[in-house]
């Protein structure tokens, strides 16, 4: 079997990197010398680098907060807006249209969620709902137009 060349080793450097310690003793000894070297480097960190690191930390924490799911499951959300889980599921899966009251509850719920983050645009849920309706209606014309056109006429011509 041919032994690996330096080129092969570099090509494989990122395939199968095993960085586990063999023993606690090995781990502790390496940790001690690493910490010693790091403490010297840390002393030489400029104020600017420390500020950059703190700003990056803030950015990463904000990102994690925003991406965090508010609910683990649908049932808790249904409880919070005081509707049955079945009704919520029907609306989410397009088996039932949401009533005005449902959209208004979403509006109030979102206001509460965003209270400490930013201003929530009250009209957004209505816009989402009606935009979806509009898209659905326009994209399904082939299905409904032929039948309904027979029912619609202009009795008086408009000039």
């Amino acid at each position: 079997m041919k032994s690996k060349t330096n080129k092969d080793l570099i090509a494989d450097a990122e395939y199968g990197l095993d960085s586990r310690y063999n023993s606690k003793k090995e781990r502790d000894s390496e940790a001690a010398s690493l910490m010693e070297a790091r403490l010297i480097r840390m002393k030489n960190l400029s104020k600017e680098h420390i500020i950059r690191a703190k700003l990056m930390q803030l950015k990463l924490k904000m990102k994690a907060y925003i991406e965090q799911p508010i609910y683990d499951d649908q049932n808790h959300f249904a409880q919070d807006i005081n509707i049955t889980p079945i009704r919520l599921s029907q609306v989410i899966n397009n088996h039932r249209d949401p009533k005005d009251e449902f959209i208004m509850k979403l509006m109030i719920h979102s206001e509460k969620v965003y209270e400490n983050i930013c201003e929530f645009q009250k009209e957004i849920w209505y816009q989402v709902y009606f935009h979806e309706k509009l898209c659905d209606t326009m994209s399904s014309q082939e299905e409904w137009r032929t039948k309904l056109e027979k029912d619609v006429k202009l009795s008086e011509a408009i000039d």
Partner: peptide, 13 residues
């Protein structure tokens, strides 16, 4: 960095 800010370190051997 998210956890340790200016003290952050990633290591491997």
């Amino acid at each position: 960095v998210k956890e340790y800010a200016e003290y952050a370190c990633v290591s491997l051997r």
